[in-house]
Amino acid sequence: MPDTTDADGLTVGQVSSRLAVTVRALHHWDEIGLARPSLRTAAGYRLYTAADLERLHRIVVYRELGLGLDGIRAVLDDPAADVTGALRAQRAQVGARIERLRQLGAGLDRMIDAHERGLLLTAEEQSAIFGPEWNPDWPAQARERYGGTPQWQQYAERSASRTPEEWQTVADTVAGFERALGQAMDAGVAPGDPEANALVDRHREVFTAYFPLTRQMQACLGRMFESDPGFAAHYDGVRTGLASYFRQIIDASARAHGIDPDTATWQ
């Protein structure tokens, strides 16, 4: 379509450029009767008069404010329309969207922080929740070691939405499991016994507070619990020899499910 002026009006292309509105939108508004050009050239091309352009300006303004086309039509054409009321209602909707975006921004900040730090708790909160033996540097060390893994990402996602009270629940659940583990060892529950296997299953369930744990991954943890000085000291602090016992019951359960615990990989 030629983009030439007529003495009595502007072409669709000229209006599109002037108002930063697509030609498609102008055609649509014409089709639904919201903004029809008042003139046509001899060849049938649409031409917009000054009055048409003023209406289009108003449509653009109200559209940028978020009003739908039906609402814009009512504001422009309905003498009984409560324009102020419509604008106030739109302002309320905008305010609600702003608040949702603010909450989204805060959530993104927490997610970023969780990916970078792991625990979104102060050193004092960590000590109060996890006990005086807890080292606040451990989360940063864990990120250095595991930060690029899917499990760290899953852990961060859980951490981002968890409150100190919820972390306390996690800590209490873990402590309860460790007490049960120590009691089983004291009672002579043998690796492979139903009670021992139930404890192994319970451990995987408890561990989901951090990330989902497969049997293969659990076997890898069992090796680490026994061989890593820090983990071994923790479990042996609950009961002497508990680190080795824990690995033994994990290994027995793994073998019962066709997994060689000595060669299991993190998957």
Rank of each mutant, 00 (worst) to 15 (best):
G182S: 08
Q218S: 07
R179I: 08
E144K: 11
A123S: 14
Q151L: 13
F207N: 05
G131D: 03
R179W: 12
T149N: 00
Q216V: 10
R158F: 12
R215G: 04
A219I: 07
L120Q: 02
D137K: 06
E157K: 10
P191V: 03
E133I: 06
Q218V: 02
L199R: 03
D172L: 10
P191Y: 06
D193P: 09
L221D: 08
P194K: 08
R202G: 14
F177T: 13
Q141D: 10
V206L: 02
R223D: 04
W167A: 00
E205G: 14
S161N: 13
P212C: 08
A156R: 02
G188Q: 06
A187W: 00
N197V: 12
R158N: 14
A190G: 07
W138G: 03
F130M: 04
A140E: 00
L120G: 00
E205K: 15
V200N: 15
A180E: 15
P212I: 06
R223F: 00
R204L: 08
F207T: 05
M217V: 04
A175K: 13
E144G: 11
N197Q: 15
G192V: 02
A160I: 00
A198G: 07
A180N: 12
A196P: 00
N135W: 09
N135Y: 11
A175Q: 10
A140S: 03
L119A: 12
F207C: 04
P136M: 03
R223Y: 01
P136H: 02
R204C: 08
P212T: 06
G222D: 10
T214E: 07
T122N: 01
A128P: 01
P139E: 00
R179N: 08
D172E: 14
L199V: 11
E166V: 01
P139V: 00
P191C: 07
E144T: 09
A180Y: 09
A175N: 13
R223H: 04
C220D: 09
A190W: 10
A198K: 14
P136C: 01
R202D: 15
M217A: 13
G118Q: 01
L119T: 12
P132S: 11
R145S: 14
P136A: 00
F211D: 05
C220Q: 11
D137L: 10
T163D: 00
T122C: 01
R143A: 08
E205D: 15
G192L: 02
E205V: 14
A219V: 07
D201K: 12
A160E: 04
P139T: 02
